[in-house]
Nucleic acid binder design. Structure first.
Lengths: 204, 204
DNA sequence: TGACATTCATACCGGTTGGTAGGTATAACA
DNA sequence: TGTTATACCTACCAACCGGTATGAATGTCA
C-alpha cells in the first residue's frame, strides 16, 4: 500500500513537471510557438513520458488552462474578492498587491490567460471554451461581490453589476496588454490607477 | 514614359497584393502561425516575387504594421476625433459606428494591432517598437482631443488626460479581446456601453 | 541593337515540427 | 514465479517551414 501511494505521488509528479514546463513555454512563446522539444529539454522528461500522459499537444494545452490558469485566477482574483464585505476596497487591494508582486518579466510575457485567448480563440474551439469558462467564473465572481456590496451599502445601486464586471475584466486585460507592449511597469501602474478611479466612481 | 508609369503601377500593385494577403493571413493565424506558402497560394504570386519585395518574413510583418495597421488606426480612430470640438460626443460616435460596422468574422479575429502586440512584443523588438509607435500615436491623439475638450469646456478639468487616454485604449482593446474570446457581438456592445458610461463621467 | 537592371518563376535545401513504433524496466497481482 | 499493466525511453518519420540559387522574361537606356 505504501509503495502504491509512493508510485502515485511519483506519477503525478512527472505529470506536474510536464504541465508546469508547458505552462512556462506557452507563456513565453504562445501555444503555437511552444515547442515540445523545448519543453522536454527544459526538464529531464522524454517524449515518451510526455505522450504517455498527454495524447496530443492540444490536450497538453487544454490541461494547462484547466489545471493551472483556472486555479491561478481563482486564487488571485476571485477568492479574496468574495471574502470581503466591501468589494471596491478589496479590489483596490488586489490590484495594488498584484502591481507590487509583478516582475518586469511577468509584464513582458503578459497575462497567460489573455495570451491564450487572443491566440487560440479563433483557431480552436476547445481552447476557446475552456478559456471562456475561466473568464465567466471571473466575471461571475465580480458580479457576486458587487451585488453583495450593493446590499451592504458599499456600492451604488445604480450600477449594472453585469456590465461593470465585464468592464473591469476588459480594462484589466487591456491594461496588462498595453503594459506588455510598452514593456513598462509605469504604464501598468498608471493604467491601474485609472481603474481604481473607475472603481471609486461606483461607490454608493 | 507611359510605360514607365504603368510598370510602376504594376510594381506597387504586386507589392500591395502581397501586403494585403499577408495582412489577412496574419490577422487570421498570427504572425508565427502565418504561412508564406498560404499567403502565396491565396494570391497568384510566387515565392520569387515575395522575396523580391521583402527580404524576410519579419520585414513583411513590419510592413504590414507600418503600412496597413498604422493607417487603419489613424483613419478610423484618430482623425475623426481630432476634427471634433467635443471629444466625448465624437468618441461615442466612433465607438457606435465601429460597433455597427464590425462583422462577426472581425470579432472572431480580433483587433489586428492588439493581436500582434500580444503575440510578438516579447519576442521581437522590431515588432514591439512599431506597434508601440501606433499605440503612442493613438494615445497622443486622444490626449490632444481631450485637452482641446477641456479648453472648450466639454471635458472636466479634473481629469488627467494622459491617464484617461491610456485607460480608454486599454478598455477598448480589452473589450475587443473579451468579445473575441466570447465570439459574441453582445459582449462587445455591452462592454462598449460601459466605456461610453465611463466617457460620460469625464464631462465638465 | 546590345548591355544591363528589374521582376519575377521554379526547383530545391537544411532544419524543425508534432507524432509514432517498438522496446525496456519496474511494479502489481494471481 | 509467471503474467500483465504501467511508465517510460530511443530512434525514427513525413510534413512543413522560411529561405536560396538559378534562370527566364521583360523593360530601360546608351
Amino acid at each position: 500500500m505504501s509503495s502504491t501511494a509512493r508510485d502515485t505521488v511519483q506519477q503525478l509528479a512527472t505529470r506536474q513537471v510536464i504541465l508546469e514546463a508547458a505552462y512556462e513555454e506557452i507563456h513565453a512563446h504562445g501555444f503555437q510557438g511552444a515547442s515540445l522539444s523545448k519543453i522536454l529539454s527544459s526538464t529531464n522528461v522524454t517524449k515518451g513520458a510526455l505522450y504517455h500522459y498527454f495524447p496530443t499537444k492540444l490536450e497538453l494545452g487544454y490541461a494547462v488552462v484547466d489545471e493551472i490558469l483556472s486555479e491561478h485566477i481563482q486564487q488571485m482574483w476571485i477568492h479574496p474578492l468574495l471574502e470581503a464585505e466591501d468589494p471596491i476596497t478589496a479590489f483596490k487591494k488586489i490590484i495594488m498587491q498584484a502591481g507590487n508582486e509583478i516582475t518586469e518579466d511577468d509584464i513582458q510575457c503578459g497575462c497567460p490567460l489573455n495570451n491564450l485567448a487572443q491566440e487560440m480563440a479563433p483557431k480552436d474551439e476547445g481552447f476557446r471554451s475552456r478559456v471562456e469558462a475561466v473568464y465567466r467564473a471571473w466575471r461571475k465572481g465580480i458580479e457576486k461581490a458587487f451585488l453583495k456590496g450593493q446590499e451592504n451599502g458599499f456600492v451604488s445601486k445604480d450600477v449594472n453589476v453585469v456590465s461593470v464586471a465585464t468592464m473591469i475584466v476588459a480594462s484589466l486585460e487591456g491594461c496588462m496588454g498595453l503594459a506588455k507592449n510598452a514593456q513598462s511597469k509605469k504604464v501598468l501602474t498608471q493604467c491601474g490607477r485609472s481603474i481604481v478611479d473607475y472603481l471609486e466612481s461606483l461607490r454608493a
